[in-house]
C-alpha cells in the first residue's frame, strides 16, 4: 500500500548524511594538501561518501521504481492525500501495518546488503594494498 515510504525516509536521511560527510572529507582534503600530506588511494581505501553513495543509489532507485508500481496499482495518486488508503478509515490500519512490517523489512534488507558490500570492498582494498606493499 505504501511500503516504499520507509526506504524513502531512509533515502532522505542517508542523502543528508552523505552531503555532510562529503563536506567533511573535502575540508580534511584541503587541510592535508596544505600540509603536503597527500596520502595515496591505496592507503586511505574507499571514502565514506563513496560508500554512502552506493546506499543512496540503491535506496532512491528502489523507491522510484516501487513508486511507479504503486501508481500502476492505484495505491498512490498525484493529489491529496496521495495514498488512496487514506480515503477509507478501514484501510488506514492495514496500511500502517504494511509500512511497519514490509517497509521496515525492505529498508533493513537493503541496508544489510549494503553493509556486506562495504565489508567486501574494504577487505578487497586491504588485500590489494597488502599485495602492493609486498611487491614493492
Amino acid at each position: 500500500m505504501a511500503c516504499f515510504t520507509v526506504p524513502l525516509a531512509e533515502a532522505i536521511i542517508v542523502t543528508v548524511v552523505k552531503k555532510v560527510v562529503e563536506k567533511k572529507e573535502r575540508d580534511s582534503q584541503v587541510k592535508c594538501t596544505k600540509q603536503s600530506e597527500l596520502v595515496s588511494a591505496n592507503e586511505t581505501g574507499l571514502s565514506w561518501s563513496q560508500k554512502l553513495s552506493w546506499l543512496t543509489r540503491l535506496l532512491w532507485g528502489g523507491v522510484v521504481l516501487l513508486a511507479l508500481e504503486h501508481i500502476w496499482h492505484g495505491e498512490v495518486v498525484p493529489w491529496m492525500p496521495f495514498l488512496t488508503a487514506m480515503n477509507n478509515p478501514a484501510d488506514i490500519a492495514p496500511m500502517l501495518h504494511e509500512i511497519a512490517t514490509i517497509g521496515t523489512s525492505m529498508a533493513v534488507f537493503v541496508t544489510l546488503i549494503w553493509i556486506v558490500m562495504v565489508l567486501v570492498a574494504d577487505h578487497k582494498v586491504k588485500y590489494i594494498s597488502k599485495n602492493v606493499k609486498v611487491e614493492n
Binding site: 532512491w60 522510484v64 525492505m106
Partner: peptide, 12 residues
C-alpha cells in the same frame, strides 16, 4: 544500483 535497489525491495 537503481535496478538492484528495486530488485531487493521487491524480493522482500
Amino acid at each position: 544500483l537503481i535496478y538492484w535497489g528495486a530488485t531487493l525491495m521487491w524480493f522482500v
